[in-house]
Simulated assay, not measured.
Amino acid sequence: MPSLHDHLEEKSVHELLVGINEEDKKVAVAVEKAIPQIEKLVEAIVPKMKRGGRIFYLGAGTSGRLGVLDASEIPPTYGMPNTYVIGLIAGGDTALRNPVEAAEDSAEKGWKELCDRNVGPLDTVIGIAASGTTPYVIGALHHCRKAGILTASISCNPGSPVSREADIPIEIIVGPEFVTGSTRMKSGTAQKLVLNMISTATMIKMGRVKGNRMVNMQLTNQKLIDRGARMIVEETGLDYDTAKELLLLHGSVKKAVDEYMKHQ
């Protein structure tokens, strides 16, 4: 059967962009169908994390990079230590920028890397693999299940091997890519959306958000300090300069507001 998108080299730039956009529109609909499984996963993660458990993301290539990206955003956004959500990519940090030959082909490497970090029953291990066939991910999930560790998977192929190794398989069926096999496109977008949902919902349930504000964000630049000071102004009615002083004294919006309210 001919592809819906063929002879791409003959199309205009406008036609290419419209075609990519049309495919991208399908992604959120596919993610919506998986909300029950995503909900089940978050509901399982939160009580474990409240007892000190961690989330591990494992993937290779684009999938691995997306896991590392999501994990790296947790400390600045929610003020959680970087030991709570950890991204592992086949081939290590080198693979974030450059392909590492055959790194994903070892079915034992992922499990070894988890063991090096003392993975245990309070932890949750989420394997990310668009094809659902990556040995690095499948092997790690297989060992985790044998060890009684909660496993989940995020893939874009129905009934794939990685789903069979997951206690909670999340399958986002986005259909063929605009460029055949280029899973950094719709599949990558789908995985990013799911990771956003998992980590955001988890952090909210961990008490790291108030209202819809990042009250525990790290004050790593002037923009965030300004944003935090304005949050305190809204919450307390203080003038901006006093709010900023309070923020810098206590290090987070939440701590600053809590301390201020104690003395009112």
Score class of each variant (00 low, 15 high):
M1G: 14
S3Q: 11
E9L: 14
E10D: 13
L16D: 06
L17Q: 11
I20N: 11
N21S: 15
D24A: 14
K25P: 01
K26D: 02
A28K: 14
V29D: 12
A30V: 01
I45A: 11
P47H: 10
M49N: 13
G52R: 14
F56Y: 12
Y57P: 00
Y57M: 04
R65V: 06
T77W: 01
Y78S: 03
M80Q: 09
P81K: 14
V85L: 12
G87M: 13
L88W: 10
L96T: 14
V100D: 00
V100G: 02
E104V: 08
A107K: 10
G110S: 04
L122Y: 08
L122S: 08
D123R: 12
V125N: 00
A129M: 04
A130G: 10
G132Q: 09
Y136A: 02
V137T: 00
I138D: 00
I138E: 00
A140I: 06
L141R: 09
H143C: 06
H143Y: 08
C144R: 14
R145I: 05
A147V: 03
A147E: 06
G148F: 03
L150C: 01
S155P: 00
G159L: 04
G159R: 10
V162A: 07
S163E: 04
R164M: 05
I170G: 04
I173R: 15
P176I: 05
M185S: 07
K186Q: 05
K186N: 07
G188D: 07
A190C: 01
A190K: 08
I198R: 13
S199T: 14
T200G: 01
T202R: 08
M203V: 03
I204H: 03
R208Q: 01
R208W: 00
G211S: 08
Q218V: 05
L219Q: 09
R227G: 02
G228N: 03
E234N: 09
D241R: 15
A243T: 11
H250F: 11
K255M: 13
V257N: 08
V257I: 15
Q264C: 13
